[in-house]
Design a binder for these strands. Sequence first.
RNA 1: GCGCCCAUAGCUCAGUGGAUAGAGUGUCUGCCUCCGGAGCAGAAGGUCGCAGGUUCGAAUCCUGCUGGGCGCGCCA
Length: 566
Amino acid sequence: MIDIKLQNLFEKSIKKCIKDGVFSIDSIPKLELATSKRPEHGDLATNIAMIIASRAKKKPIDIANAIVANLPEEKGLVKNVTVAAPGFINIVIDPALFLEQLREIYAAGEKYGVLDVGKGKKCQVEFVSANPTGPLHIGHGRGAVYGDVLGNIMKAAGYEVTKEYYVNDAGGQIRTLGRSIYLRFLETEGKKVAYPEECYQGDYIVDLARELSQTSRAKLFSLAEDDAIELCGEFAATKILGEIKRDLAETGVIHDLYFHENRLHTDAAIDRAIAELKNHGHIYEHEGALWFRSTAFGDDKDRVLKKSDGELTYFAADIAYHKNKFDRGFDRVIDIWGADHAGYVERMRAAVVAMGYQKESYGVVLIQLVNLMRAGEVVSMSTRSATYETLEDVRKYVGRDVCRYFFLMRSHNAQLDFDLELAKKETPENPVFYIQYAHARIASVFRKAKEAGVSTDLSKVDLAALDLPEEWQLARLVGDYPKVIQDCVATLEPHRLSFYLMELAKAFQGYYSRGRSDARYRIISNDPARTAAKLFLLKNCQIVLQNALKILGISAPEEMVREEDE
RNA sequence: GCGCCCAUAGCUCAGUGGAUAGAGUGUCUGCCUCCGGAGCAGAAGGUCGCAGGUUCGAAUCCUGCUGGGCGCGCCA
């Protein structure tokens, strides 16, 4: 809003400068406004004079001065404008304008921060997609929370989002799973078997074998070995997928759709996808196998779709799945993969482009791995015996909110050290509590106000009663929220929201705490107009805290309860 | 060997070409008669891995190094 108004003012001024012959350029550059880091640089700053200077071959400072001199007057917008070397234009906004924004926020309520940049386009976010052969580990957890929150952010930004989980329930891995179960079953029957290294080693395999045995012992003996293994595989995969879903649900991650790979096989979708590539001339045969010429689209080497033994590769199924995605009408398809799949990106992109879909509509986000730590020591992830290895164990140990926040407080393309002992600490070192505390404190003030019989009717508030710099600052900060959402969408980086929340919480705590020593800062006073205005400001802070926490999938408690008090 | 990611305060990390590089934590010093001290204010702490280059301006972009992580199958 403010941006647009300023854009207009500057455009007018620049046009006048051109007309007056101060400088000459072909087109007017877009006005970039940055929030100033230092108070003496005003609220906003623009570098437009320097941009123009480089094009017009003039001194930036002269251009800045000319632009400022020609800025039209507009009441209630700009309070002051100054020029600083080498050519910055610093703008002080009328504080009343930030305060006015509060009314919009209050009116929008939980809709505040909902944007239309997505314009209702259909967006699919695929994440987790772990094979149903074992429990989710902490790395899956990071991808799960990232994908969930990215989906929430895209939704808030105006996309129509589908969160999806691709289930690899066909092929070799499920057969191996079935064999693992079957062999463990034989063991429980007292048979001596050699348990191969490539089979799944976890204890859960034994548990599943026992469980299946209870209902289907006779059947397993009556079937031919291959059929028995298939039965074991189906049983275990279904069971494990159920566990994964429950695990995700408890982490606050809900997918809209579980897409089963099996479907692609039963309705010949893979054949159709290969045919599609063939029509475009990107398929050839070599040494009895069927190849996709992915090198034509920037991949390192061509890839096999059908092996010489006649079996399809997983890549073939993945291509069919992605064809399916685009055929369902998604304008944007975002895959979220672990960093260990980086080598897979180029071939998938190649396939998407080769089938004739827009390159820009497809994106892959790689999530770097997680190092699980305990009090500074790395907890081994390779040994199955390690205690806190699964997502479930970690979540149960630290709690859902902390678990999610730790995954969200870091850029996804940096590795994450997840320290269990640090996450477990409830006091200052743990930002999630600090943010929640800000929310709870506001709730507490409202309870107090009610007790004291203060009117909490916020429909008519005199904003002029907010006359402290910290109050303008807070108003400005909550006004930044939609921009933060926009940035998160543009960069696909939800951690920016976490950092914003921290900043907002800090600004609020600082403001609130001054009330201890300075009566002007106390929220509830015997001045009804000031009290109402301050409550209104707090309410707006609370709205933003709530909306942002909701996107992150973290609770916004009305009060904080210490664990030892429970 | 090739590809991708990372390197910023003691530690963990922000910083999508802008001004004197910021938080949290740790260390040190203060602060409460009163709305929640899980708090607040302040101080100290930096050759932004190294070397070049592009630019009015580089932690940010380009090139080459160094160090760490991941990946390079007719595996999944």
